[in-house]
Structure formats: C-alpha cells, structure tokens
Write a protein that binds this DNA or RNA. Structure first.
Lengths: 272, 272
DNA sequence: GAAATCGTTGCTAATTATGCCACAGTCGCG
DNA sequence: CGCGACTGTGGCATAATTAGCAACGATTTC
C-alpha cells in the first residue's frame, strides 16, 4: 500500500479564499475554536492565536456574543460558548442531514465488506459514533452503536483521527492523564502511541485488533473536511471472520472522500 | 396586573450596534435563521428577507458554507444547516453552561413556590424542557422532565413563548396543520388560540389548567434574549394544591430577567 | 424553444474594518 | 496599601474590504 495520504497538510487554513467575506470568515473561524480542547478564550489570547490585532479580536468576540454564540463571563471577561450554539445543534439534529448523507454510504460499505461501518466524530476527548450500519451476517451482531464513545487512544476508529491532530494538541490530550487499559492489547505507553500515530499517517490508515473490544478487528481512515481532520470512518468485525481488514482500505478511502464531498456541499462550479 | 411587557418590541434587531462588525454580524444573523421554521434558504431569498444585495447574500452563504455551518445542496443550490452546527451543539452540551446558569434560579423558584419550575426552549414546532426542578412537596412528583416536548398550542409553557412570535411565523406554524386535542380543555380553534395569544401579550403571562396534562395548573412567562423571544419559564403543580398561580408572576418575571441577563452575558461596561 | 429566474463573478465607489494609540479597569506584587 | 503589569475598551485616520451594479451562464418554467 503506497502513501497516498498528504501527511502534514493540515495547517488550518486561516486565509479566506477569494470571493468570501473575510470578516465573517474570521468570526466563524474563531467560533469553531470554542471546542473540546479549549473552552474559554480571552481577547488577547484570540488575538495572539490568530494573529489579529487586539481590537479586532475584541470586536469579533463581541459580535459573536451579541448574537448569543458566545457569552462573556462578567467577572473574568473571558468568553465561553453561548446558547445560540444549542439552537444550531438542535437545528442540525432536526434536519437529519447527517443520516441522510452518511447512511447510504455506510450501507454500501457494510454490504460490500460484510463488516460494521461506523462514522465517528471527535467529542470532548473521545470519539463518538454518530452513524453506523451493522454487518449483515455472522453470529456477532453489534448492538446499538450510535452514540457510543470510544477513548482517544484505543482502537483504529480513534487512532485514525487522532493521528492527524497537530502534535501539540495531542499532547494536551494525553499529557498528564493516565492511559487507560481495556484489553491486553491496549497500547498504554505514550511514546509507543506516538510512534503508532506516525505510522498511521505514513500508511494512511489505522488497523487494530482487540485494543478496545477483545477479538474485534477494525480498520479505519481519516475523514477530513476542507483539509482539516473531521472524523473517522471505520470497518469492524470479529477477529476470526473479518480477515485481512487492510484489503478494504481503498474502499474506505473512497467512501471517506464521498462523505467529505457531501459534507462540504459547496455548489459545483465550472472548475469542478 | 398591569401591562409591563413591551408588546411588539420584537422586531429582530437587524442593525449592527456600534463597535461591532457588520459583516460578521450579518453572517451570524443569517445563520440563526436556519431554524425550525425555515430549514432551507436560497441566495435570492436571503437577499430579500434581509434586504441585502444578491451578491452579498451569496457571499455570506458561501462563507458560512466554507466553514461548514451550512451545506449547499449541489442540485438545488439551496443551503441547509451544516455539520459545524453539530460541533457547536456538542461544545455547548459539554460546557454545561445552561445547567450552571439556570439550575440555581429554578431551584430557588421551586423552593419559594413549592411548584415545579421548568425552562423550555422552542425546538422545531414544540417547546422542549431543557432544565427543570421538581416541586419538593406534595404527593404528585413530576417524572424526568428534562428533554420532554410540549406541543406549541397547549399549556402555558408553550403559549407564553408562541404568543410573542411574529403573527406571520405563528401562522406558518398553525396553518394547515390540524390542532391536536389532549384534554377536554385543549383549545383547538385557531382563532380562539390567536385571541388567547393576544391576551397573553397584554397581561404579560400565560396561565392554563389542564390543557395538556389533566389537572395540572401552569403559569408561565416569556424569556427573551436581546429583545427576541427565546424560551419560557414556567411553574406548574397539581390543580388542587397549586392555588392561585398568578400570584407568582412577579417572581417568575424576576427569574426570567435573571436568566436573560446571564444568558446574554455581555461584559459590564461603564454605562451599566 | 423561448423567457424568466437563479446563482456566480469582475469591477469600481464607498463604506467598513483595521491598526495604532491612549485610557480604564483588574489583578498581583512588593 | 499603592504601584506596576496586564487585559479589555474605545476614538480616529488610513487603508483595505465590502457593497452594489451589471453582465453572464446555467437551470427551470411555461
């Protein structure tokens, strides 16, 4: 398997493309950084992180707060995520877009490989299965998977994603925290983990056996959106029957690209 | 009870206040309109609705799509809510801000009135209880309330909110759809409903008995954020023991204002 | 097949955002 | 308790971005 993945292409594109509105784009960019890794930002911090002038950072944050996307702590004057985020979250759930987009792709994937296909997105310091289709045959039926959380360090589903996070952020994740063991195959050594992440980036996929659930083999690839790591797509099955998982990597890659394209959902232009 | 509520002040402030960034504000404003009432927008529609030029609308939408807040249907070129909305929703849930802000207020409300206090927010065409504190005494204990949905037309919790929606949006809600009956006290006549909404606006609160759940009396007021209807705050209890619910309206109003202030969370300025 | 509608894109004027500066609170320290 | 450092806020001239126009291409409707 050759290295088709563009290792290290994940500089989070901060430049605003032509034809788009810079100020709006910057606001949205800042907003997206109120995630699990960083929940609070001050004016100066935002200015430094994004290279804005302080006054710009302050006005961006104030504008986001004005529409309820952030709230400013009256005491510390630091900003946290605001109630409009909930509004959007509900709107997204209601829309059912994710299932509509992803389910058919998962279904095909599962049908062609006879394995369980899962799309997982990062959630706090874990990966959360947001859509899944059971492998159709075999004795082992997988229980309700949607909503399930996986630890960041065990299993291909998580590794395929976290391998592509900037090393700095990964350190924030794993530093200090003890690394939990789930099976005798769980990797609990920090430097061994880091070496694995490197290998995953090099080969473009992650493959594990029984790291989280015993006797379950999983192969997974990164799903990126607009050049940034977004989630992971995986195929899993019982160790005995799900033979040579790596053979499905091309299929997984193709499906991941499909998802990426449909999640991006930019209108077709002449250049496409 | 006098009319203290500023009826009709809910023109959704589209002007961007001084010191804020107009372009960013417009983008956020547009984004917030991808809610339950309207899930799809085209470029021209946005331009007309907000009074923008077509090209501005197109660039706003493209920018929102670029960061994943919207996705454009490749075929129809209409925009729908995008995956970044989910990201934000998760961030909000994780932050636990809502509970932290609201729970103490609900607790005090419940303790002082011996009733069940609920904060409900609109969700799709319903109201969803997002935080609640049980009335502490009495034989009737209310079950897990958080997450529960109430229909838009029955019960004070819903009415206190929907009364303040622009009539036009309310019509979108109720037009065509049959109005479901839950108890013999449910109001199912559209014009009777509209008359009630008017009265609620005039008196500044909603009060119902057994419209949704039999033998449950509820009194509720609007919670607005930055001059826009945001949700409702209600007190409810068994019809027999929860006497003269209207007496608690001042308390409810005060609590609603507290919530509003803390949800807005703008830093104090000299003028405050 | 024609007309109307919708979304996209270059271009220039003009509004808007930018960055600098100065000020005002706050926190920590001596 | 007062001093210094830092963070956030606001005014203002400049410079850059956006707004609006208008024309085009692509779709859809009649």
């Amino acid at each position: 398997m050759t290295v088709t993945h563009d290792v290290g292409s994940f500089a989070d594109d901060r430049a605003t493309p032509d034809g788009l509105l810079q100020t709006a784009d910057r606001a949205l960019q800042v907003l997206l950084h109120f995630d699990g890794l960083r929940t609070e930002w001050g004016v100066t911090e935002v200015a430094e992180e994004f290279g804005f002038n302080k006054s710009i950072a302050q006005r961006l944050l104030a504008t986001l707060a004005h529409r309820g996307f952030l709230i400013a702590d009256p005491d510390t004057r630091r900003y946290r995520i605001g109630p409009s985020a909930m509004t959007l979250g509900h709107a997204w759930e209601r829309s059912g877009s994710l299932r509509a987009i992803v389910d058919p792709i998962l279904r095909e994937l599962s049908a062609r490989t006879d394995a369980t296909a899962i799309l997982a997105l990062p959630d706090n310091l874990h990966m959360r299965a947001v859509a899944a289709v059971d492998g159709s045959s075999g004795p082992l039926r997988v229980y309700p998977l949607v909503g399930e959380l996986y630890p960041a360090h065990a299993g291909a589903t998580s590794k395929a994603f976290y391998a592509y996070l900037p090393a700095q952020q990964r350190q924030l994740l794993f530093a200090g925290r003890p690394i939990a063991r789930f099976t005798d195959r769980t990797v609990t050594d920090a430097s061994a983990l880091e070496a694995e992440f490197l290998r995953i980036r090099q080969q473009g996929y992650a493959s594990t056996v029984g790291e989280y659930d015993s006797h379950v083999a999983v192969v997974a690839v990164l799903v990126s959106v607009r050049g940034e790591p977004y989630g992971s797509l995986s195929l899993g099955g019982p160790e005995e029957s799900f033979v040579n998982p790596e053979q499905h990597v091309p299929l997984l890659r193709h499906a991941a690209q499909q998802i990426e394209r449909r999640l991006t959902g930019r209108p077709r232009t002449r250049k496409d």
